[in-house]
């Protein structure tokens, strides 16, 4: 079971979280024209990286905050975690 550092609560087991997928996906702004390709990329197309993957988890049985987790998809190692509004450098 993964051991995830919630930036708000500290180290917590995976069962307290729910997964939210690729965090690099950005929703197009409201009320702006979006091309078919851009919309499909947002809704469907995924890079599905092998290696370092920035992804979303929600601390659903804890503080209920959505967080960003940098995790290696080939080893499951977690290198860093971020709050929802933190810039990922």
């Amino acid at each position: 079971m993964l051991y995830i550092k919630c930036p708000h609560c500290g180290m917590r087991p995976q069962i307290e979280f729910s997964y939210g997928g690729d965090a690099s996906v950005k929703r197009p702004e409201l009320n702006k024209d979006v091309s078919d390709q851009d919309w499909d990329d947002f809704v469907y197309n995924r890079k599905s990286l092998r290696g370092k993957h920035l992804e979303l988890w929600q601390h659903i049985s804890g503080c209920r905050q959505w967080i960003k987790v940098e995790r290696d998809t080939s080893t499951h190692e977690i290198s860093r975690t971020f709050k929802a509004d933190e810039e990922v450098a």
Binding site: G21, S48, H53, R71, T73, S74
Partner: peptide, 11 residues
Amino acid sequence: YNSYAQRGNLP
């Protein structure tokens, strides 16, 4: 969760 690790966890 996304993975290529070919290893899972017991839960």
